[in-house]
């Protein structure tokens, strides 16, 4: 369980995350939604210790982030940020094997390689595993990075806009994989996502943020609601039921 208590972060005098408290249950997908500048990515980065916090506490399985050794934390929680433009010549397989660093410190054992192979298989990258990253399309690259996170084999997986720049087919493919990870492997996944329909169709819980504060959090069905969304996005959103899922129509 991840618990966030009264977390704040400010740049200059402006709070980007302002007194946020929330709990993330194990074995679920939680989506952070909200307009641009709501503080979603900042919150995610603080939970994963990429960014320092100005106030508040974060507990992961009752341990305080910041007191646990970074290397121990890396076996528990992993994060994938958007914009992974690295300029080094790396094959997919090399990249995925980096996921084992917290366990092996760079000297991979047989067991480590088993995890690497599994991750590659899971993301259906077998045919691409010896290709260099700069030869891959956007969707393939994103899958490779997710495979690296899988090889890291952490209980909690945090993804910052994993669907950015992906077309519909690849977006659905990634979301299905995430769902499968939760349902089959019991992982806990937190994503920052812009498309509220993906959030609605695939997540268990949604946290809606605006101006650094939580507007409302709860099970998906409660958040995908005209009133709540009006409050978050400041626009009229019509909700329609499609095969047990709620679909947001906001184009007019």
């Amino acid at each position: 369980m991840i618990e966030v208590k009264q977390l704040s972060k400010k740049y200059g005098s402006k709070y980007v995350v302002d007194d946020v408290s929330l709990t993330i249950e194990k074995g679920t997908i939680t989506s952070f939604i909200g307009p641009n500048g709501a503080g979603k990515s900042t919150l995610l980065s603080m939970i994963s210790r990429l960014l320092s916090k100005d106030a508040g506490e974060i507990y992961i399985d009752n341990q305080i982030v910041g007191q646990v050794k970074s290397n121990e934390l890396a076996k528990k929680i992993s994060i994938l940020k958007q914009a992974n433009h690295i300029d080094i010549r790396l094959t997919v397989r090399d990249l995925v094997s980096f996921g084992r660093f917290p366990y092996s410190q760079g000297k991979l054992t047989k067991e480590d390689w088993i995890y690497v192979d599994e991750a590659i298989e899971y993301m259906e990258l077998e045919d691409l595993q010896d290709r260099y990253l700069d030869q891959l399309s956007g969707g393939q690259k994103q899958r490779a990075f997710i495979a690296m996170v899988l090889a890291q084999n952490t209980e909690y997986i945090l993804l910052d806009e994993p669907l950015n720049n992906l077309d519909m087919k690849h977006s659905v493919q990634i979301m299905k994989v995430l769902r499968k990870l939760v349902d089959e492997k019991g992982k806990t996944i937190v994503i920052v996502i812009h498309d509220i329909n993906f959030a609605s169709f695939y997540s268990d819980h949604i946290v809606a943020l605006k101006d650094g504060k939580i507007v409302k959090k709860g099970p998906t069905a409660e958040i995908i609601d005209s009133c709540v969304l009006k409050c978050v996005y400041d626009m009229d959103i019509c909700i329609q039921d499609i095969n047990e899922n709620k679909m947001c129509v906001y184009f007019s």
Binding site: S48, L50, K69, A74, K75, I79, K81, I86, I88
Partner: peptide, 12 residues
């Protein structure tokens, strides 16, 4: 060489 975010994520 993967960058700061990736390195922190991997426990450095």
């Amino acid at each position: 060489s993967l960058g700061r975010d990736a390195a922190v994520n991997l426990g450095v």
